[in-house]
Simulated scan of single mutants.
Amino acid sequence: MASIDRRSLKSGVTWRVRWRDEDGKQNAKHFPRKVDAQRFKTSVETDLHTGRYVSPAAGQVTFRAFYEQWSQHQLWETGTREGFDLVVKQAGFTDMPLGKIKRSHVEVWVKAMDTRKFAPQTIRNRLGWAGTIFRAAIADQHLAVDPSAGVRTPRLAPKSERMTIPTADEVRTLLEHSPAWFKPMIALGAFAGLRIGEVNGLQGSDVDFLRRTIKVNRQVQRRSNLPLEIRAPKYQSFRTISAPAGLLEILSQHMEQVGLYGDDGWFMPGRDGGPAWPRSVDYHWTRTREAAGLATKFHSLRHFYASGLIAAGCDVVTVQHALGHKSASVTLNVYSHLWETSEDTTRAAAQGLMDAVLSSGEDSLRTQGTS
C-alpha cells in the first residue's frame, strides 16, 4: 500500500507519496498539493492491485531499446522482421522513453506518412506493427497503455475498388505471350491460386497426376541482400489443391518439353541446381505482362482463382483451404464482397416465386384458350 506524509522544506510544504513496487523496492514522489498526492496514491494502488503498475525506471527504456531486446526472441519470417524494422527506423518517437510517448506522437508519425503519399494500407500496416511493439511493452510492464490505440489512419477505398481481378481474356493473353518455360508460373497462379513464391518452390514430386492434386509444401523468398530462402508457405499454409485437368496438362507438357531443373526437380529453373531467384521471376513476369499489354500484378491471378471458386458456389471454408489462408475470417475479409449478400438471395428467391406464379397463370390461360 502507498502512504502520504507532509514534509516541510525551505522551498515550502510538499506532500510525499511512498510505495513499494512488486519487487519490494521503495519509491517516492513529491507533490506541492495534497489533493494531487492523494490522486497519485490512489492511482498507484489501483495499478499495483490490477497488475498494470509500471515502475518509473521501466518507463525510461526507449522504444528502440525495448524493440532490439524483445525482437531477438520472436519467431518471425524475414519479411515480418523487415516490416517491424521499418517502424523503428522511420517513426519519430523511437528514441523516446516508452513512458513519454503519447498518442499525439503517434498521430504526428501517421500524418507524416500520409503527407509523403504512403498508401493507406501501408500506413495501416505500419501502425499495426507499432501497436504490436507497444502491447509487448505493456506485457513486460514497461508501459501502462498503448499510445497507438484509436489512432486514425487514412480511409481505405472499398475492397471492390482496391481489388483488380483480370478477365478470362486477359489471363489467356498472358498465357499466349508467356515463354514456354514460364507458362506454369501463370497457370498455377490463375488456376490453383498459388502465391508467386509458392510456384517458385514447386517440385515435380508435388504434383500427383493420378490423384489430380498439387501439394504446396514450400515457398522461395529472398529479402534485401540475404541468401535465397526455401521455407514453409506463408502462415504455414501447407495444403493439397484439387487440380483441373487443363492445368495438369500444362504441367505435363512442361515436364516433357522443358523438363524439371536440378536434383530436386524444380519447375522454375534457377542456378546451381536450385529454384529460380525471385528477382529473375519478377523480371520475366514483368516482360510477359508488358508483352501482353497489361499492368496486372501477379497476385491478381490469385484473385482470379478465388473469384472463380466463389462464382461456382464454393463456400468460405473451401476457398480458405484452397488459398491457404490461416483462417476463414481472413478469406471473408478479402473476398466477402464477391459472395452473394442476403439481399441478393432474398431477391432471387422472390423472383423465383414470381416466376412460378406467373408461369402457372400463363399455362392456365393457354389451357382455357384451347378448351
Rank of each mutant, 00 (worst) to 15 (best):
S237A: 08
I250R: 00
N333Q: 08
A356H: 11
Q253A: 14
P278D: 07
L228A: 05
A328D: 06
V330P: 06
R347M: 13
A348T: 10
E290N: 10
G259W: 03
S280V: 08
L294R: 00
C314L: 10
A295Q: 14
P269Q: 02
A276K: 06
T296M: 04
M268F: 07
H321A: 13
L338D: 04
P275F: 01
I230H: 02
S336L: 03
G352A: 09
E229P: 13
S336I: 08
N333Y: 07
L332N: 03
A232G: 08
S307D: 07
G259R: 01
Y335P: 07
Q253P: 13
P233D: 01
S252Y: 13
F304D: 04
R231G: 12
A232K: 07
L353Y: 14
P244S: 01
S336G: 05
H303L: 05
D263E: 15
Y261W: 10
I230C: 03
V319D: 04
P227C: 01
F238E: 09
A295E: 15
E343S: 11
A356I: 15
N333T: 12
A276H: 10
G259D: 08
F238S: 08
G293S: 03
G270C: 02
W285N: 01
T346I: 14
V258S: 07
Q236G: 15
R289Y: 05
T286A: 10
V316A: 01
F304N: 01
G270A: 03
Q351W: 14
A291V: 03
I230G: 06
F238C: 08
E229V: 15
L247I: 02
T345F: 12
Q253I: 15
E290F: 06
A292V: 06
H254V: 06
Q236V: 15
V319G: 01
H254Q: 04
W266H: 02
D344Q: 08
S300W: 07
V357S: 11
Q351C: 12
I310L: 02
K326G: 11
A243I: 09
A243W: 09
A292S: 04
S307V: 06
R289F: 02
L338M: 04
R347D: 12
S359G: 04
Q351G: 10
P227E: 02
A306V: 09
W266K: 01
H325K: 01
M354K: 14
Q351D: 15
P269W: 04
R347Y: 12
W277E: 15
V330I: 11
Q236T: 14
K234P: 08
G273F: 06
A291Q: 01
V334H: 00
G265A: 04
A312L: 06
H299W: 05
S359Q: 03
G273L: 08
G313C: 07
H254N: 05
D272V: 11
